[in-house]
Write a protein that binds this DNA or RNA. Structure first.
Lengths: 157, 157
DNA sequence: GCTTGACCTCAAGCCTCCTTGAGGTTGCAG
DNA sequence: CTGCAACCTCAAGGAGGCTTGAGGTCAAGC
């Protein structure tokens, strides 16, 4: 029982994968249902994950940190092999997309911070002058709505 | 009808606030219910928002970008005056918290990116060597689980 | 061979952040 | 004064990302 529930082939039972990835089994089943990871079944219908699942799970978690939805992660993972470690080339392709994403996000945050600092500097928070209001570069980010505060004919508030 | 639905006092009807903030009226009612914005009512029970609501809504959206939950935003907003523009000092206090948050987030992303780059460099993605697996610094971030992949006695996969 | 814990499959529930809809009221233009 | 858009409330629904629970099976230790 203490020994890992692992095949001689090194395949992992769901509990094992859960323990190693730090996720709940339920989450792993969910990921599998979403097509993020894949398993084979034993004769008794239990899941057995290839070791690569460990990598894929780590990838998923990391991607979520960057703000990707599981759907987006799936799209990215679909470009990596299911059964073996990715080649440098394969990995490269995926990672490139990611880095763009990360850079974009960092950029957004930095611009936000800058605007915030500007606001502190001016101490105004006036609707007209303050760049915190609809910077105009948040387009395409998350959330509905247009946020077109800037340029409105508003008196100071 | 074309003229803004605005008091002579400059207070905004919900539709007006919605149009100017780019959010749906339903979202604004929700925000109000959450205590993020406040309104007075007309004799006919319609909401009238002070102009400061515009600022507060902008604040909320910006905060969401940084990854704050509405609850956290509420906590931050509670430190700003409801009825007037915040003073530089008041704003400073709030903004400081924010910047820390932004910096932290940027830091996370940069570390992630770095690890990712390292992975490309080594081309390995090995469970032992690759820093993408449980970096050990994701603690306290969102999501359940411990993610303690690193340091596991794993053969190369 | 039995017990016990890990596993299985649904289905339902939960949290956040809203949207949608039904049914009814208000308020401004004409 | 009427008509219609905008507003109101309250209840339900929905997406994303899981968890929980019921009811049942599998497999390893004794």
């Amino acid at each position: 029982m203490l020994a890992a529930m692992t095949d001689r082939d090194g395949r992992l039972a769901i509990g094992e994968l859960a323990a190693r990835s730090g996720l709940a089994p339920s989450a792993l089943r969910y990921y599998e249902e979403m097509g993020l990871i894949h398993s084979e079944r034993t004769t008794g219908n239990q899941r057995r994950y290839p070791r690569t699942a460990l990598r894929r799970v780590a990838f998923v978690r990391a991607a979520q940190q960057v703000g990707l939805s599981l759907e987006e992660v799936r799209a990215a993972l679909d470009r990596l092999p299911v059964d073996r470690a990715p080649s440098a080339t394969e990995w490269n392709a995926v990672a490139r997309t990611w880095q763009l994403r990360i850079d974009a996000r960092i950029g957004e945050l930095e611009r936000l911070k800058e605007r915030l600092t500007g606001c502190i500097g001016c101490g105004c928070l006036s609707l007209r002058k303050c760049r915190l209001y609809n910077p105009g570069d948040a387009a395409g980010s998350q959330g509905p709505g247009a946020r077109y505060l800037e340029g409105d004919p508003l008196p100071e508030s």
